[in-house]
Simulated scan of single mutants.
Amino acid sequence: MTATPNYIVTTGDFIAEWMEDEDLNAAELARRLGTSRKHVSELLSGKAPLSHQVALDLERVTGIPARLWNLYESTYRGDLARLASEQELAAQYDRAKAFPLQYLRKFGYVTANARDRAGTVRQLLEILRVADLDAFWTTWRHGSVAYRRTATARDDVAKLATWLALAENSSGERSDGPPFDRPGLHALLPELRALTASDEPLDAVRTAIDSLHAVGVVLCFIPAVPGLGIHGATRWIGGRPLIQLSLLWKSDDQLWFTLFHELGHVLLHGDKDLYLSGDHTTAEDEANTWASDLLISPAIAATLPRGRDIAAVQEIAADLGIAPSIVLGRIQRETKDYAWGHSLKRKFEFSA
């Protein structure tokens, strides 16, 4: 990888090089250009910008095309702006530490190390898609995206915004999908439910991603940010629902239940709000009930065993065509007894 140089070559350096080759001093160059010695001195030092007219004058004096002089000047001014920007970025590092930088480094979203303050801030801003941290807070509080405004009262906005932004950036890779197909999603639900029982959990997840994409629903997985405590989120972007899951508890029952919970938001609720699992809202309660009833009907739920009977769990799951861990999870939630049946749960991990 080519490193960006930390020095600047001024347009005046190129002029001075030509003058040395031609054994010409500043006074003579000023006479030939028809300008003052002061202006030539400022050109040589980089203080005065090289105008298009001076570039044309230099073309006649030096024989070097004006486009090259203009290129030298553009490169010089760009380098000046780059170095100034590096200093401004480094100055924002202390504020950037409010964001989960260690998490971003762990999963490779930020590759700059802690010593590279400017690089760290630059990559964070690229994730957030803002020019600086002032712009981030202004956009979050007053921007046109409704879900940002609904979450401004939270005390973990920096973590939440980072997690949400990672999903939005990831979803851009599947932006060529079809529009949202509500009937198609309804028809897909039995297939998604059956995927929970697959012998190959990772393949089942990939199939779910592709199947949902075909009906205009984007599903992505973004690692949980420490301390955020959110299993899933749903909002609409570009007319399509975006569902992201965190694998917070890393178990297949939680993954599938959260997915169906978020699909409940897609089918039951509006397309203007952000829905975060764990929020104490009517919409969250409705999505919970919808997902629970879809996976295990209320009539069957009423007959589930209340004791620690793994064989019964497996038999019921086979009859229902769903993962045993989902039946187990339902029993555990209703009995508040979580200290058994762990062998029925399959684990998912993000690669760090």
Rank of each mutant, 00 (worst) to 15 (best):
67 R>K: 00
144 S>Y: 08
196 T>D: 11
334 E>K: 12
90 A>L: 05
52 H>K: 14
90 A>R: 07
56 L>Y: 02
11 T>K: 05
259 L>C: 11
325 S>E: 09
287 A>Y: 08
13 D>I: 04
220 C>T: 15
213 H>D: 09
75 T>K: 06
282 T>V: 12
49 P>C: 02
155 D>T: 15
73 E>M: 00
14 F>K: 07
249 W>V: 13
287 A>N: 02
79 D>T: 01
137 W>P: 04
146 A>P: 10
158 A>L: 01
18 W>Q: 07
137 W>K: 00
118 A>C: 00
121 V>P: 02
68 L>D: 11
25 N>A: 10
321 G>C: 08
179 P>I: 09
182 R>F: 02
200 E>F: 12
327 V>M: 08
233 A>E: 06
127 I>K: 04
48 A>W: 06
344 L>R: 08
98 A>F: 13
48 A>D: 00
143 G>T: 09
9 V>S: 15
349 E>C: 13
18 W>L: 05
152 T>V: 15
46 G>C: 09
150 T>S: 12
238 G>H: 07
271 D>C: 10
61 V>S: 04
121 V>T: 07
300 I>H: 12
173 E>F: 15
14 F>N: 02
163 W>M: 08
168 E>C: 10
30 A>V: 06
247 L>T: 07
160 L>M: 13
333 R>Y: 14
337 D>Y: 09
112 A>V: 05
64 I>A: 00
69 W>P: 00
69 W>I: 01
79 D>F: 06
41 S>W: 04
206 R>K: 14
261 H>Y: 03
203 D>M: 12
98 A>S: 08
121 V>Q: 00
311 A>L: 05
243 I>C: 05
100 P>S: 06
264 G>V: 14
125 L>R: 11
21 D>I: 02
136 F>P: 06
178 P>L: 10
153 A>K: 14
190 P>Y: 10
268 L>S: 01
348 F>P: 07
339 A>K: 07
74 S>M: 09
84 A>G: 10
103 Y>M: 06
